[in-house]
Design a protein around this nucleic acid. Structure first.
Lengths: 104, 104
DNA sequence: ATCGTAGTACGACAATCATCGAAATACGAA
DNA sequence: TTCGTATTTCGATGATTGTCGTACTACGAT
């Protein structure tokens, strides 16, 4: 089974989280995950970039501590690390998600 | 008198704001401005980078819409665009400022 | 008019980044 | 085992970024 590295809660840095969120493709991913009740596979989110670029963006989000990723079979399931982020940076994720949800 | 370009409220983009905030030097500036009651000149904030690099960071913040800058004599006064940011992205600035203030 | 202070403009440089396509891997199903 | 699907890895490339030093400009004070 493939295992993926995630930063511990204590290792998540504000700069990295902000940097991870400062990209339209990654915001699109976060937005999708925010309104999904449970884990979402990569292929469920239609990104207007190539597959390899998509992989890159998921990795940036994971390594920053914004999302968690686990393999289930051949698919990889993604979820926001809501609790961890809310603990570290209260209100940050909510405000970003609200801001991206508010615009059309 | 020298005049500086600031984005209109409607031109401020979330990605640019997040990108502007995703740098330790710029977070230091924001942190300082957040706990200053009124405008602060560039030279009041001691940054561990050269003057020209400092100028660069102030410009990134201004062009993203995070701060406003006006000349008064030979000095340039900086202030957070609190109201504009709160209108556009409610809670965002507060959560970021709290996060940087919370860590030592 | 001259001087000092505050900040800018201009290259330049190395590092990081977003992007891609093509080849490779992991795993479930047939 | 063979096939198909999901995702990765590996360069490569062009764009952006953070950094600097030096030379410059703007302005107040002398």
């Amino acid at each position: 089974m493939r295992v993926l590295d995630h930063p511990e809660v204590g290792e998540i840095r504000l700069e990295s989280v902000l940097h991870a969120l400062a990209d339209p493709i990654r915001l699109q991913i976060v937005r999708f995950l925010a309104q999904a009740a449970r884990g979402v596979s990569c292929s469920e989110i239609e990104l207007e970039v190539s597959k390899s670029t998509g992989t890159h963006h998921y990795r940036v989000l994971r390594e920053a501590g914004v999302i968690s990723q686990v393999y289930r079979g051949t698919a990889k399931f993604n979820a926001l690390r809501r609790d961890d982020l809310d603990t570290l940076f209260p209100g940050l994720l909510d405000s970003v998600v609200s801001a991206i949800a508010a615009r059309r």
